[in-house]
Design a protein around this nucleic acid. Structure first.
Length: 677
RNA sequence: UGCGGGGUGGAGCAGUGGUAGCUCGUUGGGCUCAUAACCCAAAGGUCGGAGGUUCGAAUCCUCCCUCCGCUACCA
């Protein structure tokens, strides 16, 4: 590998519309911090950059909902999240924010630079505009009736009921989720970064020159590039963000995804006047730590931006992680299904390292992983307490008992001693190789093996027995055990810095250099150590049960919240009502539509005819069980093709609080085709 | 729908053609310096399913099932 002079580490800018949870930590910030601390211990010139991403539509909406300004929203979460990072020892050199002036200047300048070089294309398109709220609407903020399944709560980009991808123009009765009003189409002008222009270059840069990237990252990039890249808008119609710095761009800001990665640059500028050294010198190695949802932005769009600008370096690696689940369910801010960092510290004060350890040991490096409180407890009790804490404790207690805390001299070593001493540097090298390859789970396991080695050494050497017959021999044994503890303060420092800080205090030593690991003379004979405390405490079942109960009550609260009754709709005229042809029918045949989870293909007798209707009820009804059932249908709905099957009409279903669908069946049997009014 | 990444003993993971490994848990034994912690041993897997290539497949090919993500103004 190329030899680099310095490192620039960036961690995805967390979006400032909510607090941080364990998923953020596990996926991005714990790995980035481990790597940064490791590099610092190697004496490398390294800076770690992060900050709040504070622009974009969701923040303006949150502000609108709460009746405060967007600035107030981001102020709140910026300070909350900055503190959470500090509390967990995520050691950024700077935690900046994109609402800073320096960022506005940097982002404007970047845009203007590309603009003047003619790197953008301009295009006018028609988009839905909310006249009441006075803004253009992203697809996600338009709702209406799905033309395929009749779901009234379909989004402008997708119907979540039947899974069909939609465009806002497809929706029947579109309305804005912001004001509820009916949006109108308006023309708007935007600037685009022609990604297609960079396709050939990206293909070579990633697919040929960076085959070493993680399979999930490489695969995702390959997929995008192979599908063909298209110009991507870099501006938005919004009043919150960095204004587009050209004539006639009033009311337009830089799209957050153009704006946010530039935040890495502006934060570096804020940190050091020598920022260009980190961003423009090819001897700097840049690494982006991100989650899998960010791959395309950090591997394709941002590099294309940097390439277009011309004077910047490109990331050498982008070790993206997968996602962390919580107790078998997706972490979700809106559903409050998360372990919030600030709440964790209230419940487990001083136990930052337990979480750091658990999240690293179970990090979603190759696939999504699950965080469970039982696993958290087991990792703490069986690994941190039993293996690491216990080894340190027994070594320090024995040293205090036998030698009043003075490190004894190492005498003649036997074969076992020598192989244990040799093993220390083997472990150091293994951990180092794993760290360099961004395999942090593996690196942590290697580092912990040093504590395992220590326990085994004590059990084999039995100093508590030997002390009765050969006191010289015990000095050697204890010296070796102590050298192991000193080595632990090095190899475990990147992972659990708070605990290693404790251990260094007990050992009465300073932070050592990474390359001191493997040495067997870190503690000199006669060096005095202090009385130890407990490095980790057992976590009892009650504490874990409390956390589980907390999550269960969240689940219940969510069900209750979802149970609220929908408000009544606007009145319709009798004429309008009679236009809808609702009648009874009987199901003759039912079968699952292949490759779908929700769709059933039904053959029904409507009295008028026998026809096919596709309905999204497969999750609630087995095909065999509904044959012969009498139901209610809308008979004159325009036919629609669903999954290639023509569906003529719609089956009426009552939707329960929890989303469960129930057939609307006449109380007594009536003949097919009876009208319902 | 398409694309990308997963599915390996109870749990979490490693393992890309040659007798299936690691950590934790479980069971039995040992030790007693240590937060009932530590050490040793054992049990436990038809490697998501079906077919194929091969002397030989967790590993290569085909199809299928399943989980997650992306699919371009959802950050």
């Amino acid at each position: 590998m190329k030899n680099y002079k310095r490192y620039l580490i960036t961690s995805a800018l967390p979006y400032a519309n909510g607090p941080l949870h364990i998923g953020h930590l596990a996926g991005v910030y714990v790995p980035s911090d481990i790597y940064t601390r490791y590099l610092r211990m190697k004496g490398a010139d390294v800076i770690s950059i992060c900050g709040s991403d504070e622009h974009g539509v969701p923040i303006t909406l949150k502000a609108r909902n709460e009746g405060i300004t967007p600035q107030e929203v981001v102020d709140r979460y910026h300070s909350l999240n900055k503190k959470a990072f500090e509390d967990f020892g995520i050691s950024f050199d700077i935690y900046s924010r994109t609402s800073n002036k320096i960022h506005y200047d940097t982002a404007s300048e970047f845009f203007l630079n590309l603009y003047n070089k003619g790197e953008f294309t301009e295009k006018t398109t028609e988009q839905y505009y909310d006249e009441e709220a006075g803004c253009f609407l992203a697809d996600r903020y338009i709702m209406g009736t799905c033309p395929y399944c009749g779901n009234e709560n379909a989004y402008g980009d997708q119907c979540e009921k039947c899974g069909t991808s939609l465009s806002p123009n497809d929706l029947i009765n579109p309305h804005s989720t912001i004001s509820g009003s009916k949006p109108v189409l308006r023309e708007t002008l935007h600037w685009y970064l022609p990604l297609d222009k960079y396709e050939g270059w990206l293909k070579k840069w990633i697919l040929e020159d960076h085959k070493e990237w993680k399979t999930n990252v490489y695969g995702q990039c390959k997929s995008w590039i192979d599908q063909g890249l298209q110009p991507r808008a870099v501006s938005r119609d919004l009043d919150w963000g960095v204004p587009v710095p050209v004539e006639g761009a009033k009311g337009k800001v830089l799209y957050v995804w153009f704006d946010a990665p530039i935040g890495y640059i502006s934060a570096t500028k804020e940190l050091t006047p020598e920022w260009e050294k980190y961003w423009k010198d090819p001897e700097t190695r840049m690494i982006h730590f991100i989650g899998k949802d960010n791959i395309v932005f950090h591997c394709i769009i941002f590099p294309a931006m940097l390439k277009a600008e011309g004077s910047f370096i490109l990331p050498d690696n982008v070790p993206a992680n997968e996602f962390l689940n919580l107790e078998n369910d997706k972490i979700s801010t809106s559903r409050n299904w998360a372990v919030w960092l600030h709440e964790y510290l209230e419940d487990f004060p001083g136990k930052q390292d337990v979480l750091r350890y658990t999240l690293c040991a179970n990090a979603p490096e190759t696939k999504d992983n699950d965080f469970t409180w039982k696993d958290f407890q087991a990792r703490n009790n069986n690994e941190l307490v039993a293996i690491l804490g216990n080894f340190v404790n027994r070594t320090l207690v024995l040293t205090n008992n036998y030698y009043n805390g003075s490190v004894p001299e190492r005498g003649v070593t036997d074969e076992n001693d020598n192989s244990v001493l040799a093993e220390i540097s083997v472990i150091k090298e293994k951990a180092e190789n794993s760290l360099e390859a961004f395999r942090f789970r593996e690196a942590l396991k290697e580092a912990m093996n040093l504590a395992r080695l220590g326990n085994k050494y004590l059990a084999d050497a039995e100093p508590w027995k030997v002390v009765k017959t050969d006191t010289e021999r015990v000095k050697t044994i204890m010296n070796i055990a102590l050298q192991i503890t000193a080595n632990l303060t090095i190899v475990l420092e990147p992972f659990i810095p708070f605990s290693m800080d404790k251990l260094r205090k007990w050992l009465n030593i300073d932070l050592l250099n990474w390359d001191d690991a493997g040495r067997i003379d870190l503690l000199k004979p006669g060096h005095l150590i202090n009385k130890p405390g407990l490095m980790f405490e057992k976590i009892e079942n009650e504490e874990i049960d409390r956390q589980i109960a907390k999550l269960e009550s969240t689940k219940k609260a969510n069900v209750t919240a979802a149970a609220k009754i929908l408000p009544s709709k606007d009145p319709v005229s009798f004429d309008d009502f009679t236009k809808v042809d609702i009648r009874t029918a009987t199901i003759l045949e039912a079968e699952k539509v292949p490759k779908t989870t929700k769709l059933l293909k039904l053959k029904i007798d409507t009295g008028l005819d026998v026809r096919t209707i596709v309905s999204g009820i497969a999750e609630y009804y087995e095909p065999e069980s509904i044959i012969g059932k009498q139901i209610s249908i809308v008979a004159n709905l325009e036919p629609r093709k669903i999954r290639g099957i023509e569906s003529k009409g719609m089956i009426l279903m009552a939707e329960d609080k929890d989303g469960k669908l129930v057939m609307v069946t006449p109380a007594d049997k009536v003949s097919n085709g009876s009208s319902i009014k």
